[in-house]
Design a protein around this nucleic acid. Structure first.
Length: 421
RNA sequence: CGGGGAUUGGCGCAGUUGGCUAGCGCGCGCGGUUUGGGACCGCGAGGUCGAAGGUUCGAGUCCUUUAUCCCCGACCA
């Protein structure tokens, strides 16, 4: 992508109406556009990041047999009434609307009921299970107060997966598989070391559900950690959990955290409310077991910004960065221009994601933008690089000169980190 | 939903006790000099001061209502 053609611009000034670091940086760098409180559009650079996060999640969900689909935002009332969740007293984040003829509709804040209703048509026997489906969906939640930039919005992207099983044992086994898959996801997103599976409140449905919490000062939750035992407990259920786990409160470290994933075991609750059964091997009717598994895609993006950013701007992990290399042409020298254009074409044609700063700006502005946008590596060609390419990591100070051929080779191998180490 | 703060060119801000054609920085356009960490000079475009009422000879400034944004709290399946 050429920056001369990108419609978004970076800004030197911090937006006054945001105090959340993630929103300030993402807006300044041109990754998101704020439409209203808690509602953000994702501009080309931001969309690339979202797609990268989704790609990682998708790969891990596919690896455990998840089947991707996409449900709808418009949902009928009846299905939610069957589980009592249509009521605003039960669910206080509903956006509701209606058809022209007055038929009430809900705008999806979740999809458990919708998935179950769909599955009613496809599951008749124990032989039809287990089945696991997931989607990347825009969720609409009428939060009383949006806050923390893209970390708690009224419209946001979530990966939600649902698994249906013929037995509690089968569900439990899959539930564990999902936990492992989630760990891989957070590792690949670069926040694995600070992300913990926690015990948390599951509302009226389960005694304990599990949350994935990432240590983050901008988060809304308080976590009690035992790093040695790799145990984390949400403050909400601290007293109960301590009893269950047999650890003392004084052994635990108190940290702020952000919920980046949440999994629930509904058991047969939904099926019983919705009268959904299957024929078992015994020839009798049994209720379906359901679990749901969420990852806040846009929230994860915000958490990454919050955790990695430094005083110069965003720092993206390689896996989610909108580009691998920020290629900057310095000066207007014809030879330099030709050489940089050629390198851009070569990198692009071998599949390397490059942000090419081909604008007629001074060096300082380009360097500042490269830092602000958080691209992992910066390659510079100028009259001073003597026909070579100068390479620098976003988080490092030292630079290295190499030939264009060498750079192409390293980009192919994605091992620039080793080169600069 | 309770409490607090804010709203003035695209962005960030200033604007005295009401008083002249509403300023500044950045950005933007044109010309020139520059060219490795956000250059400089000159010229220029761009604002019904969130909105609606009201007080006044006169309102960015005072009063009323209202909208939006941010923060704290409550909430967060």
């Amino acid at each position: 992508m050429k920056l001369s053609q990108l419609f978004t611009k970076t800004s030197k000034t911090v937006p006054a109406d945001e105090t959340a670091r993630n929103a300030q940086l993402l807006i300044q760098a041109g990754f998101v556009y704020k439409v209203m409180a808690g509602v953000y559009a994702y501009t080309p650079l931001g969309l690339k990041v979202l797609e990268n996060i989704k790609r990682i999640v998708r790969e891990e969900m596919d690896a455990i047999g998840g089947q991707e689909l996409i449900m709808t935002n418009l949902q009928p009332r009846e299905v939610w009434e069957s589980t009592t969740r249509w009521s605003d007293d039960v669910v206080d984040v509903w956006f509701k609307t209606e058809l022209k003829d007055g038929t009430p509709l809900g705008l999806a804040w979740s999809h458990e009921e919708a998935i179950m209703e769909m599955m009613r048509q496809f599951i008749g026997s124990y032989k039809d299970m287990p089945v696991s489906v997931y989607q990347f969906q825009t969720k609409l939640r009428n939060e009383l107060r949006a806050k923390s930039g893209i970390m708690r919005g009224r419209e946001f992207v979530m990966k939600d997966m649902y698994s249906l099983h013929a037995s509690a044992e089968d569900l439990d086994a899959y539930y564990q598989q999902v936990i492992e898959a989630y760990k891989k996801v957070y590792d690949r997103l670069g926040i694995g070391k600070d992300t913990f599976v926690t015990f948390a409140s599951g509302g009226a449905f389960t005694k304990f559900s599990h949350e994935f919490q990432t240590v983050c000062d901008a988060g809304e939750d308080i976590l009690y950690l035992h790093r040695g035992k790799n145990v984390a407990v949400n403050e909400e259920v601290l007293d109960e959990a301590i009893k269950e786990l047999g650890v003392g409160k004084d052994e635990l470290e108190k940290v702020k955290s952000a919920e980046v994933g949440n999994i629930f075991n509904f058991g047969t609750e939904k099926a019983e409310q919705m009268h959904m059964t299957f024929a078992g091997a015994d020839g009798k009717e049994h209720p379906i077991y359901l679990a749901s598994y969420g990852i806040g895609i846009t929230r994860v993006m915000g958490v990454i910004v919050e955790k990695m950013a430094d005083d110069k701007g965003i720092v993206w992990p390689e896996n989610v960065a909108p580009a691998y290399i920020y290629l900057a042409r310095i000066g207007d020298d014809a030879a330099v221009r030709e050489q940089t254009d050629a390198l851009y074409d070569a990198l692009t044609s071998q599949g390397c994601l490059v942000l090419y700063d081909d604008r007629d700006l001074r060096a300082g502005e380009k360097f500042a933008d490269a830092d602000l946008m958080g691209i992992p590596y910066r390659a510079v060609i100028s009259p001073k690089t003597g026909g070579k390419v100068e390479l620098k990591a976003r988080t490092g100070d030292s630079t290295t000169l190499m030939t264009a051929e060498e750079l192409l080779q390293h980009c192919k191998q994605q091992d620039l980190a080793d080169v600069l180490a």
